[in-house]
Design a binder for these strands. Structure first.
Length: 445
RNA sequence: GCGGUCAUAGCUCAGUUGGUUAGAGCACAAGAUUGUGAAUCUUGGGGUCGCGGGUUCGAGUCCCGUUGGCCGCCCCA
């Protein structure tokens, strides 16, 4: 039947699908608003260079990119971060600090579909610009947790894994590794959870095998899961040979950790946060704390990810401006809600359904219908004459709480019957009091 | 880019070693029923059997190709 198919990986939202999507967006937006974040939006189509500048030309293979009629190389946006960096960078000196922004938008990546991943998806993005200290991370991690909790998800359902690329850099530098080797090790750490020792293979191929003592210490560092564990490692580094410079940086960094974890505890959110140095996040532009949200059962791919990217605004042509942000994808998140039975089921139907006798009664009903709608009530009625029995059935199935009955008997007496569709009881009200009676009924008066 | 698996009505699926005009349930619509509800009965609309080719007297069924879905690998901003 379908001559034209939906493009592979793209989604269509029928009304019942859009109900669920809107529910998700509504609570995300509400959470961001309660945290004082301002909403923005931006174009879906951007210059290709916006993405190749940040991630290199290889990225183009994963973009919906093409040349437009003006000869411009363009791409559908695969993420929000470069765009928001441009927006903020362009007006940085005029924006009130702290800059707390969020958006909800659709993104496109030319990829093969998998569970929880398609070629188009929506993301909630929240970012704070201009705040170099952990105060920004505190606010964002709290918001991330709220974006999940507001759906009824608990610490049984998800947690936020928190790590720190700064400490990783200081630590690996103390081992005497140069920057290229450090990035190689971080790549292995990123894959370690999935592949175990295999994860170090690419490093070995590029730089030769890792020294055994180094590897043991790296694996121990990877297993850090608490503030106390960080302190133990710090003591080791301080007693190490070329550790003195790195030890100073690590000691200073520990103050940020205390501030961050202290604030999370004060908010009562400790149960949602897991210190886990196995998280480093793949891309190189993160410069400090990084975090990812996962389902507790570990069945789904990442629900959300974020971290600090202090160099990116400047790299994209703006002023030097520290930044932290995170994004939640809608596909995996919807899967989690589905698994936990937390998706809403009902389309918002009418509150009032009008049962109409015939053409003469229809004209009488129209006056009330329009007045009720103008007063803000959701009102529906059959568009063609139907048997009364059928109309009551439709009224009941519509989800309406109340039916208004416009029959010839009633109108002859100057009244309308108001039927309580739940209790199946009726009262008569004078025609000029219909709006008031409906309001009283629906508000429980 | 690679691999596995699947594709019949809006949905879930039957369909015999290849054999008449491709079926059921649900859903939708009409009627029984121009004044009162989730029931019942009757009836109806809806299919190029994903698409293309091949084998055959004959293909939903067998073969090849292709497109698409799902799952995994690579990747994951």
């Amino acid at each position: 039947m379908a001559t034209f198919q939906t493009l592979p990986g793209f989604r269509e939202f029928y009304p019942e699908d859009l109900v669920r999507r809107n529910h998700i967006f509504r609570l995300w937006r509400q959470s961001a608003n309660t945290f004082g974040f301002a909403e923005y939006d931006a174009p879906v189509l951007e210059p290709l260079e916006l993405y190749t500048a940040k991630s290199g030309p290889e990225i183009e293979g994963q973009l919906f990119s093409f040349t437009d009629k003006g000869g411009r190389q363009v791409a559908l946006r695969p993420e929000m971060t470069p765009t928001v960096c441009r927006l903020v960078g362009a007006k940085a000196s005029a924006l009130k600090r702290p800059i707390k922004w969020f958006s909800i938008g659709e993104f496109y990546r030319y990829e093969r579909m998998q569970k929880g991943r398609g070629r188009c998806f929506h993301q909630f993005n929240a970012d704070i610009f201009g705040e170099p200290g952990p105060e920004a991370e505190i606010e964002l991690i709290a918001l991330l947790i709220q974006c999940f909790s507001s759906f009824g998800l608990t610490e049984q359902d998800f947690h936020v894994r928190l790590s720190d690329r700064n400490l990783w850099f200081y630590f690996l530098a103390a081992l005497g590794l140069d920057e290229a080797r450090i990035r190689g090790v971080l790549g292995a750490v990123d894959r370690y959870e999935k592949y175990g020792d295999e994860a170090f293979k690419p490093y070995a191929e590029q730089f030769g095998p890792l020294e055994e003592s180094h590897k043991a210490r790296i694996l121990a560092f990877l297993k850090i899961n608490s503030l106390e564990a960080i302190e133990r490692v710090l003591a080791e580094v301080e007693s190490g040979a070329n550790g003195s410079a790195a030890a100073g940086s690590m000691r200073a960094r520990l103050a940020d950790w205390r501030k961050l974890l202290g604030a999370i505890e004060a908010m009562g959110l400790t149960k949602f946060v897991t210190v886990d140095f196995g998280v480093v996040r793949g891309l190189a532009y993160y410069t400090g704390f990084v975090f990812e949200a996962f389902d507790r059962k570990g069945e789904l791919r990442a629900l959300a990810g974020g971290g600090r990217y202090d160099d990116l605004v400047e790299k994209l042509g703006g002023p030097a401006l520290p930044a932290v942000g995170f994004a939640i994808g809608d596909m995996t998140f919807a899967l989690l809600l589905e698994q936990r039975g937390l998706t809403p089921k009902f389309v918002a139907g009418p509150e009032v359904y009008c049962v109409i006798g015939g053409e003469a009664e229809r004209l009488a009903a129209f006056g009330d219908i329009h007045a009720l709608r103008a007063a803000g009530f959701r009102v529906d009625y059959p568009m063609k004459d139907l048997a009364f029995g059928k109309q009551f059935k439709v009224a009941a199935e519509s989800g309406a709480k109340v039916a208004l009955i416009y029959g010839s008997d009633e109108l002859a007496r100057g009244v309308v019957k108001l039927r309580d569709l739940t209790a199946r009881s009726e009262v008569e009200v004078p025609r000029n009091e219909v709006a008031a009676a409906v309001r009283d009924f629906l508000t429980g008066a």
